[in-house]
Every structure is written in C-alpha cells, then in structure tokens.
Amino acid sequence: MTTVSLTVNGQSVTADVDPRTLLVQFLRENLRLTGTHVGCDTSQCGACVVHLNGQAVKACTVLAVQADASVVTTIEGLAQGGELHPMQAAFREHHGLQCGYCTPGMIMAAVDMVNRKGSNLDEQTIRAELEGNLCRCTGYHNIVKAVAAGAQAMVQNPVRQAAE
C-alpha cells in the first residue's frame, strides 16, 4: 500500500491505496464520488474525464498514486453554492444529454475546452475538441450547441469560472 494525499473538490484527502488503483477507482470506490464514470478500457470514451491540476485527464489512465499532491475536480465539484456551473446549465438548457452516462466527462471536457480555447468556439472547433469523448445517445448535435452556449455563459459569469 502507498499513501496518497490530494485535494478533491476542495477537500483534502489522504488514503492508503494499492498502487494499481486507478484514479477513477479511487474517486468512485474510496471517495464514493460516482459521478465520474467508466465506459471503456482503452482510454477512449472520456466518461471518466476529471480535472487534474486544472487540466482535463482521463481518470481511467492515471494511477491514484500519480495524483499524489494534486488538485482534482470532479463533476461533483463543479457546481458552487447550489447553483449549476454555466456549462452544466447549458447542457440542460440545450438538451445536450440523454442517458446522462457520458455527461460528466463531456461537461468536464467542455469546461477544459473553454479554459484552453476561449469562449468563442465555432462548431468545427467544438467537434474536433470532442475527439476524446464518446456519446451514443445525442448524435452530438445538442452537445455542440450546449458547449458553444456554455462557453459564452462562462465568460458572462467569470466568478463561476474562477470556482475551479
């Protein structure tokens, strides 16, 4: 067992883990943060995307021990003060989800996209940047709309963006 200490959604966490524990397992099983999902075993589907030190990563391809001394934000940590993050609100408003399983990873990827690419995202950019996230329900049409709208809303509401 190896000891890891990290900050998850603003809370300090320390635990002894088997080194083979993946970050996603640690979040789901140790911390019971089950909003981060697992949809494949080849690092492709993106259902497990979380932010590690402010960057989107696939939590199924990071060992918990690699996240030692890091800051992790999961979908559960995005909304602040009981109010949805603008990207969460945009997914709801634009029907960017159906079964909801890919949604946490999609939203975390979308927020990261805005952090990297800014708020004026055209359709082509959004589609290209969603390379690492699979959705089987929506045909992506409304996800693209949601990301574009959420990006705009993040700028209009910079306080919320700073929450991360």
Partner: peptide, 9 residues
C-alpha cells in the same frame, strides 16, 4: 496526437 485529455498526460 490522441485527444485533448491524452495530450495533457
């Protein structure tokens, strides 16, 4: 290479 999340690692 890969996708944005892969490129972060």
């Amino acid at each position: 290479i890969g996708d944005p999340h892969v490129r972060h690692r």
